[in-house]
Every structure is written in C-alpha cells, then in structure tokens.
Nucleic acid binder design. Structure first.
Lengths: 209, 209, 209, 209
DNA sequence: AATGAATGAGTTTTCATTCAT
DNA sequence: TATGAATGAAAACTCATTCAT
C-alpha cells in the first residue's frame, strides 16, 4: 500500500489530532478540567464524539497529553538558551531570561493558565508532570546560581531555598500579572528587571553590590 | 425563646455544625474538592445525608465556608502580631514572622493543603477568597516594607513586584516543603532565616548590608 | 435509633430490592441479557435509574444475583425431596421426580428461560454458576443411580456418561417443550413417564425388565 | 463478461470472502458474538473495515452466514451416511454414527462451541437456524427409530420425547466433554458406545435385549 | 474494489440534592 | 430536627456502520 493512500491518511490523522488538541487547549484554559466536558471538546474541535475517542483514551488522557505538550513548549522557549552565550552584563542577561519566561507565558495565556491554575491539585499523574517541570526550572536556576558562584559573583546561600523562592516568585508573577491581569508586553520588561534586581542584590556579594 | 431548651438546642446545633466542618476539613484536604463526595462528608461527620443539607446549602457552600474558616485562622496566626512589638533586630523579627507563617502551615497541613492546592483554579467564588487572602498578606508585607523604607532601612524598590515575589516565594515554600514534603519543625527556622536573608540583602541599602 | 425508624427503612429497602429483582426476572427472560438495558429494568421496576444503582453494582451484578436466586429456587423445588421417602414403585417415584422438575420449569417459565437460554455462553461468572448447578443435579441423579445399583435394580453402566445423558435430556425437554413450546401441565406427566421409561429400560437389569 | 479478468476477480472475491469467514469462525468461537467486535474480525482477516462491509451486510449477517456454513458442514459429516449401508450389527453402526457426531464436534471445536454455546439465546434469526438444525437431527434419529421399529427391533415408544432425549443427550455430551472438556479421541469411542448402549437397552424389545 | 477516518446514537454509571417519614 | 431512600440530569465512553478518497 505504498500508493500514497496511507500517507495521506496519516497526514489527515495528524491534522485531526492537532485540531482536537488545539481546541482542548482553549477550552481547558477557559473552563478548567472539571468544568470541561468531552461534549465541549468535540464541539470546539468540530469532530464527532467518537472521533475524539479514536485519538485519545479519555478526557484525562488528552489533558495529560496536552499538559506534556504545553510544558514542552514552555521549556523550549525558556531553557535551551545558553546563559553565557548572550552579550551584555550578567544582570542584563538574567533580565532577558526572566523576560523571556514572562513573554512565553504572556503570548500563550491559555498555556500558562492550564499549567499554573487548572493543573494544580488535580491528581497524581498531573502532579508528577508539574513536579518534573518545576524540577527542571529549578535546575536551570541552580545552574545559573552555581555558575555565578563559581565565578565569584554570588555570595554564599542555600540553593534549595533560593531556587524555591525564585521559582515561586516567577510562578506568582505569571499567575497575577499574566493569567489574571493584563500587563502589557512593555510592563513585562520592567517587571523582569525589578525581579532580577530584587533577587540579585541578595545574591551578589556585598562588595560587588 | 431564651429558655434553657432553646439554648441547649442552639448549642447542640452549633456542635453538629462544627463536627461536620471539622470532618470536611480532613476529607477535603485528603481528596480535594472534586474527589470528595457528600457521602464521604456525612460518613466522616457521622450524620445522615439529610442532616448535612440542614446545615449547609450544598457541597460548594460548605467548602466556601470551610475556606473562610481556614483563611481566618491562618490570618490570625500570621498577621495580628505587631511587627514592631517584639524585641530583637528587625531581621530577627522578620525571621520570626516568616517562621510563624511556616509553622502555622506546618501544624495544620490539611489547612495549607486546601488553601494552596485544592482551592486553586476551582471557581470564581473560591478565587475571590484566595485573592482577598493574598491581598491581605500583600498588604502586611507592604506595610512592613513601607515601615522599613520610611525608617531608611530599605532601598528603593517596586513594592507591587516585590510583594508578589515574597508572597510567591512563601507560597512555594509551603507547597514544597510542608504540603508535599516533611520538613521537621527545626528545619522551618533555618528556612525562615534563609528566606529573610535572601529577600533582605536585596532590600537593604548597600551600605547597611 | 431503635425507634422503629430504621426497621421500617430496612423493610422498605428489602421491598424495593425485591421489586427490582422481580422486574428484572421478567425483562431478562423476555429480551435476554444483551438486549436488556438498565433503562428497561428501571422502567419495569418503576424506580429511578439511580435507585437501581443503590441496590446493584451493575447490570451484570443484578443478573448474577438473579441467576443465583433462580437456581436456588429451582434446586429447592427439585432436590431436597427424599427419593426413597415416597410410596409407590421406584419407577413411579422417578416419574414424579421428573414431573416435579418439569413442573418447576413450567410454572416459572421466565426462570427456565433465563437459566437454559439467556445465561448460556454469557461469561465466566455465569458459567461457573451454571456449571455448579449442573453438577448438583448430576450428583442428584448419580445418587439415585448408585442407590438403585446397590439395591441391585440397575445394570452396570458408566455413571458419568449416563448422568450427562439424563441431564441433557431433561434440559432439552425443558427447552423445547416448556421454554419454546406450550405443553399443558397434563402433557408434562406423560412426558415425564416417557422419559423415565426410556432411561429405565436401559438401566434396569434385563431379568427385571 | 466471462473473460479472464472477471474470472480472476471473481476468484479473488471468493477468496477474500472465505478469509473473512474463516477468521470470523475463530474469533466468534473464542469470544462469542457479543464480545466480538468488527474490529477484531477485520484484524483477524487482515482486511480493512470497509472491505468487510462490502462482503457482509452487518456483523449479524456474517454470524448468520457462518452459522449456516457450520451447520451445513456438521450435517454433512453426520447425516448423509446411509444407516443401513454399513456392515456390522445395528448397534455397531449406531455407535459409529454417534462417534462420527462426536468426532465432527471434536475435530472442529470452534464450530461446536459456536453452535452449542455462543448461538444459544442470541435472537430469533439464529434461533430459527438452530431449530431447523435440531429438527433435521431429530428426523435423522426418527428415521433410524422408525426403521428399527418397522423391522421389529425396537419396542414401542414416544418418538417425540425420545428424539428430544437423544438429541439433548448428545448436545450435552458435546458441551461438557468436547467444548468444555478435553476428552481424547479414544475416549470418544467409549462414550459413543456407552451412549448407544444406554439408549438402546431402553429401546430394544425385552426379548431382544 | 479497497481503504480507514469519521460518525453519533446509544449505553452504562455517578452523585448532588430532595423529601416523605 | 434527623433520617436515608429515592431521584434524574448529566457525564464518560463504545462500536456498528458509512463514505470520501
């Protein structure tokens, strides 16, 4: 059957799958997991009930897959950029990194809403994903801290606690200013700078400050 | 009307009400709002289904009431203590305050679990409560910041952002170290100190640091 | 709560349970397991959908319970009667026994229909019940054969095979003449006699025949 | 029209049809009608869903056709052999006939399983087929009985009842010893003999016995 | 003729809430 | 006032069948 028939079918499958997933992102973001029914998902995707179940085992399964998807995208736009690669001062690089995180959340509000609000306290599976995500971000922060410390830029500190504070602060910023609020993109730069400055002054060795 | 009979009845009513609320705290904390059925609530409280509905309008209503209850208690053990009243350095007072917050969460894990995990992203009503709670804590932090600033102890900063970072950091600490983890009470003091130090070094004027 | 309230509740429960079970007997007998929906069961019983599930875990569960019920009743009206107790010749006693079996089936056609038609090949659970039932009847037959043999009335034979033939013959009689057909009660006596005679002549020693 | 092309196409059609039917026999025998999905049928046959519906109108239709097929084969290996044609005593010929029936069932267990377990109590259509099958076997038995009676070998009896007993006995033997059990082929001969002997001693006139 | 993605009616099951006792 | 049996709307999920390619 290499007459291209199965290839086209494959492509169609992929497209339908994407359509359902995309629709799900919007609907879950708007109503949350529990207040979203499969009915709304298929309505939004423009497919029949049965079609949905050809692609996903359950409502829970598509949520998990969507979450993986979103976390992957989020990570891609945050991590994966060499901290030391950019030009400018360390502080400016950090500001740009934080700004990148905030921008990633701002340009895809549904994504952020799902990750930071709708997926909290859902169940063990979801928790595992989120935990892994946090750990990854933590490591990223930790990497930066370690680098700065080894270069003698940062004073001594408990990285476990500080990483938690940094992550928690970012999380809260996204939750309040982006998911709930309507900060414009220009505000983000300012917030990013304020954030970095707040944390940095506490991390830089006094004589550097 | 105010005879002994109605007084006793009144007292009994109040007691039953309390029993149901207490049971609800445990059950909601363990299973979350959606995975808790009215059946579990009445079983845990040891009352009949119908009795439950004589005290509370709905499952949603009791959750809201419980949440109010918990938030009230949390506030009481955190705020309501004069920052300037204690003795010792400002830093030590702040450490004690943060430690008090963490302790409040640690000694009542179910409470913290409900506030920070199960009630997130539930619905508009719950969101309002949480928002009000955060605002209150924010004001508390803000008050301290303002005081410190007016006394010349703290450098200039964006209080909106910093308050968000501080709150977010605490929230995350509670979530990771208390709700999920099992930090002992002694660890809390250490974490509180690290937290305050982290934030303070960034807030204190350089010459004070 | 020994004010009689719970007793009446208990009684009500029992009655509702019976009503559902009775309705189920009729409906399952008429349409079979697969063509019967829970909708039909609750309609026939005159209860709400939810009520059904307060008493039975699933459609499958009520079928199993019903089957147990029917098999119990069937056994009660067949076995449990001392073969040697009656008066008359052995042949007459056997005729009466077979007649009793046929009558038990004839007076409760839905019962017979479910046991011998609707429950065949359903699933492992049901199969186990039926197998146990057959085994019980087999033992009953076997007991009679052994008795007769020990008394010197019956010639030598393979009881495994003969019991299977006897059971299979009865099963088929019930299936054809009772479940499907409309033999009157008088016909049953005649059929019972013919059945016993057929089997007996083959089992009796030649000199007795 | 009758060119080589259409002939080959015709042959191919026939072959595909056969492949689907053969696969269906296996699958239906293993899982039963209701627990077999069209998905399993097409998977086992190695054709697409749509192809299946080009050959058969419905799942029900293919089951009916398969049943006809199986019943035809079963009859062919049972009936269609002249009772009087063989050599040996009547008793030996009967034993051979019963053995043939049992062997037919034993060598094609799926067939027997479908006929005697999965097709029972399915629906009216299926019931008709089975009834016709039973009637046919009944006539075969009846023919033999009549022959034997006219030749003065058999005593007087109610053929309706006896035919039912004989058929029911065979059915049960097949069900227990072949479909469920694992009697070896040698056991079949012994069982066939025991079966015939049991029935015969009851049918033969006393003086012949 | 063959394919397999799409369909949607139909099924089972849940659970917050009501109400007669 | 307390009880707990009854309710039924709503949810998730299945699967035989269709039809565009």
């Amino acid at each position: 059957m290499s007459d291209g028939r199965s290839e086209r079918a494959q492509a169609k499958r992929e497209e339908t799958r994407r359509r359902i997933l995309d629709a799900a992102e919007t609907v879950f973001a708007e109503h949350g997991y529990h207040d979203t029914g499969v009915a709304q998902l298929v309505d939004a995707a423009g497919v029949a009930r049965g079609t949905f179940y050809q692609y996903f085992d359950s409502k829970h399964a598509i949520f998990l897959e969507l979450l993986d998807d979103l976390l992957r995208r989020f990570r891609a736009s945050v991590v994966g950029v060499d901290v030391a690669a950019g030009s400018g001062t360390v502080r400016d690089q950090l500001v740009e990194t934080v700004a990148r995180v905030l921008r990633a959340a701002a340009t895809r509000r549904p994504l952020a809403r799902i990750i930071f609000r709708e997926a909290v306290g859902l169940d063990a599976d979801v928790d595992d994903r989120l935990q892994a995500f946090e750990t990854e971000l933590y490591r990223y922060v930790h990497g930066a801290l370690t680098l700065g410390k080894s270069l003698g830029w940062l004073r001594d500190h408990d990285p476990e606690v500080v990483a938690t504070l940094v992550y928690g602060g970012l999380r809260q910023l996204i939750d309040r200013r982006i998911v709930r609020g309507d900060d414009g993109p220009d505000a983000l730069e300012r917030v990013a700078a304020a954030t970095v400055d707040h944390h940095l002054r506490g991390l830089l060795r006094e004589e550097d400050a």
